[in-house]
């Protein structure tokens, strides 16, 4: 038996191809990208070494800081919305709908699987102002709230909220299911015991359920913030980063730098900044959680 399971040639044949493709498409490019941050140029014009210049440029680039601030603001807003609404939904499923919740769970979950571009097209029409009013503006007109009618996607401030709304709409059902799975695993006896001790309602949720849910809440938080820091599809498809630069996140800025302006070195530096940002945020969440638990 040992012989069969320790067959070296078989192991290489089984795991080798996957490892090879994975290394070529994912691991090698990561290292390669790091190397690019010290170069300038592109595939057509060739590359030359510039040392730390890309990093110096990063620090003094106003567009980078603007994109960074937008990314953080967006990630915090959308993550808060996704997790909070997801949690409320999960509580609703468990405490109110209980066994009847399967249908609602399925329905609220489904936007997750829809193509982002399609959803963005749909939202663009819902919030449209020209050539004709979309659902929202038409609804406002119906209610005679003419002062509220506006180009929702044409101004940075409202475009931000439409984008946030769309991404929260898309993902809250996903987090609801994630947290629901955590909630049903809390032993009923624990909740009963807390109830007997007089905890109920918000206090029960805050003091008993949330602490018990903490591990899964953290996973959800990390997953959500990592997703929203890397937001690209929804923004490209809904606003294209505009008006002007107003809704351009780091990912889109990186994409434009690399492919519209052919600056591979600086583009790689921006991608690296994004990777480091995600890493720092993830570690920070882990760190604060550990302090909290201890």
């Amino acid at each position: 038996m040992e012989q069969i399971l320790r067959n070296r040639r078989a192991i290489v044949l089984l795991v080798g191809p996957a490892l090879l493709v994975y290394s070529g498409v994912v691991l090698l490019p990561i290292v390669w990208s790091l190397v690019y941050t010290f170069f300038e140029g592109n595939v057509i014009g060739g590359f030359h070494f510039v040392g730390l210049q890309n990093y110096r440029q990063l620090l003094s680039d106003a567009a980078f800081w603007q994109a960074l601030v937008f990314t953080l603001k967006y990630a915090v807003t959308v993550t808060a919305g996704q997790i909070l609404l997801g949690l409320l939904l999960a509580l609703l499923y468990v405490f109110y709908l209980r066994r009847a919740s399967a249908l609602v769970r399925t329905l609220v979950f489904f936007p997750v699987v829809l193509p982002t571009v399609a959803v963005a097209q749909l939202f663009a029409k819902i919030f449209a102002i020209a050539p004709q009013y979309g659902l929202v503006n038409a609804g406002l007109a119906l209610l005679h709230l003419d002062g509220w009618i506006q180009a929702w996607l044409g101004q940075g401030s409202t475009a931000f909220w439409v984008l946030a709304l769309m991404d929260i709409w898309r993902a809250m059902g996903f987090y609801a299911v994630l947290l629901y799975a955590g909630l049903v695993e809390i032993p009923a006896e624990l909740i009963e015991a807390a109830r007997v001790d007089g905890a109920s309602g918000l206090r029960l949720v805050w003091h008993v359920i949330l602490p018990l849910l903490l591990p899964i809440l953290l996973s959800a938080l990390i997953f959500s913030i990592n997703g929203t820091l890397k937001v690209f599809d929804s923004i490209l498809a809904l606003t294209g980063g505009g008006p002007g630069q107003a809704t351009t996140p780091l990912t889109l800025y990186m994409f434009n730098t690399a492919f519209s302006y052919g600056q591979y070195g600086y583009g790689s530096t921006l991608a690296m900044a994004l990777a480091v940002l995600s890493l720092i945020v993830t570690i920070m969440i882990f760190g604060s959680a550990r302090r909290d638990v201890a």
Partner: peptide
């Protein structure tokens, strides 16, 4: 590889 931002892979 699960958490790596796709953007890093694009240029290489």
């Amino acid at each position: 590889g699960i958490m790596v931002p796709l953007q890093i892979l694009l240029l290489p």
